[in-house]
């Protein structure tokens, strides 16, 4: 699992690459929370374009970040969602709390 990120004002854009399962979820959570705190992040965008595999552990990671971010008035979005991952997001009702956009540009403009 590789995690790359960039910031745009107070928005954090995280590119997830590889496989997101229970084994890597804990490390990702710690790393993200650290960046969010250090860089005073308000909104968070997950770019899923290079994510080849995700199980329900990924839902836990996104929902957990949503809880923290929304308490501070921020929003969470997902972009470039592959069909197989879209299926899991829909199943979990994730789109009731997290917006889906085509790409990060659209997400930045509309958040």
């Amino acid at each position: 699992m590789q995690l790359k990120y960039e910031t745009n004002n107070n928005t954090l854009i995280v590119e997830l690459e590889g496989e997101l399962d229970h084994h890597v979820a804990e490390d990702i959570r710690i790393e993200l929370d650290d960046i969010i705190e250090r860089k005073r992040i308000r909104n968070l965008i997950f770019d899923m374009g290079l994510l080849h595999f995700m199980d329900s552990s990924g839902i836990g990671v996104i929902m957990g970040r949503y809880k923290n971010i929304s308490k501070l008035g921020g929003k969470v979005a997902v972009v470039e969602v592959p069909d197989k991952i879209d299926k899991i997001f829909t199943l979990a009702g994730l789109y009731r709390i997290v917006e889906k956009y085509q790409n990060k540009r659209e997400a930045i403009n509309r958040m």
């Binding site: 199980d55 329900s56 836990g60 929902m63």
Partner: peptide, 10 residues
């Protein structure tokens, strides 16, 4: 542990 509770549903 931030488990989503979606395992069996998946």
């Amino acid at each position: 542990l931030e488990r989503s509770g979606m395992g069996f549903t998946v």
